[in-house]
């Protein structure tokens, strides 16, 4: 039962519960006109303690497309937060007005703390560098639609794998499905943190390799998840110069990739995917943005118990 639940960590829901959300999202994608009144009379509260226009617009569009309404704030300066109100009081107040809450906060664990005071479902819309579960749902739904299922895949994760929370969440989430292999592509200093290797990959006996260059492995991938590598994250200039082009996806590298490769990116991008790739049928990152809205629609409907 998803009705009345909070979503704080992508692992809060079982694989079966995620399946229910994805199936509903697919129904919505196929027949959006059937869902335009589903949330009539319901209100989503969007509490954004730090600005994130993309995520907020995605949540708000999702609710409006379901026929619901939206209230909230997009940065703390416009709210009572600056007057020093504590989080429990804000949450109790907003929960009194709304039917469901989406909350973004710069501090890690803030949505978890807030959920203890909310008697309506609370969705973590990103808490610092910690979790961003609806991004993970968007990633999974996109893979599921691109590949037909979430099993038997070789997934390449490329770029900054040390600090990228979307990468960590995706590894944990995909590790729950059958026969998944990971190819982790990053400079040595930006490899996946050790705890992900010991507690997730090794513990579940999941096949993975770590490599430095995308061009060496791209032909083996079913999914390629690109993230940005910032120059400041490299330890030395020499490594940066040697490797920087290995983390930029362009037409040349795609020549050796599979015909049915699916390229994903959590966006916004800087230059890690060359714009010449955008028209390639393997580029799924703009669809991924759209699926992100649909999966939020399905999530809202399930947590409200209206579907």
């Amino acid at each position: 039962m998803l009705k009345g639940r909070h979503l704080i960590d992508p692992q809060d829901f079982s694989v079966e519960e995620l399946d229910q959300i994805f199936s509903l999202a697919e129904e919505i994608i196929n027949n959006p006109e059937n869902f335009t009144h589903l949330c009539n009379g319901k209100i989503l509260g969007t509490l954004f303690y730090e600005p994130s226009t993309r995520t907020r617009l995605s949540f708000e569009s999702a609710m409006l497309r379901l026929g619901g309404e939206v209230v909230g704030f997009s940065e703390p300066s416009s709210s009572s937060v600056t007057k020093g109100e504590n989080l429990p009081d804000t949450i109790r107040t907003v929960a009194a007005y709304t039917d469901i809450i989406a909350m973004r906060h710069p501090k890690e664990g803030a949505p978890k703390y807030a959920s203890q005071f909310s008697n309506v479902p609370l969705i973590n819309a990103g808490d610092g560098g910690h979790q961003h579960p609806t991004q993970t749902l968007a990633d999974l739904l996109t893979i599921r639609i691109a590949k037909g299922n979430l099993t038997n895949l070789t997934i390449g994760l490329c770029g900054d794998l040390k600090f990228g929370r979307t990468v960590h969440s995706l590894i944990k989430a995909m590790s729950r499905y059958e026969n998944i292999k990971f190819i982790l592509i990053s400079p040595n200093e930006l490899q996946v943190p050790k705890y992900i290797k010991t507690e997730v990959l090794d513990r579940k006996l999941i096949d993975y390799i770590e490599v430095e260059r995308l061009e060496d492995v791209i032909e083996r991938l079913d999914i390629l998840y690109m993230t940005r590598v910032q120059k400041e994250r490299f330890f030395n200039e020499a490594d940066y110069i040697r490797l920087k082009d290995s983390y930029i996806l362009d037409k040349e590298k795609l020549k050796s990739a599979k015909e049915d490769l699916t390229i994903l990116h959590p966006l916004p991008r800087v230059n890690e995917i060359s714009m010449e790739v955008d028209n390639d049928p393997r580029a799924w990152y703009f669809k991924q943005v759209r699926y992100g809205m649909f999966v939020r629609m399905a999530l809202i409907a399930k947590l409200l118990g209206v579907k």
């Binding site: 501090k107 978890k112 703390y113 910690h130």
Partner: peptide, 13 residues
């Protein structure tokens, strides 16, 4: 001890 944790900011937590 995580300075980015909500416990470092909220009073009464």
């Amino acid at each position: 001890k995580n300075p980015r944790c909500i416990t470092s900011e909220e009073r009464g937590i």
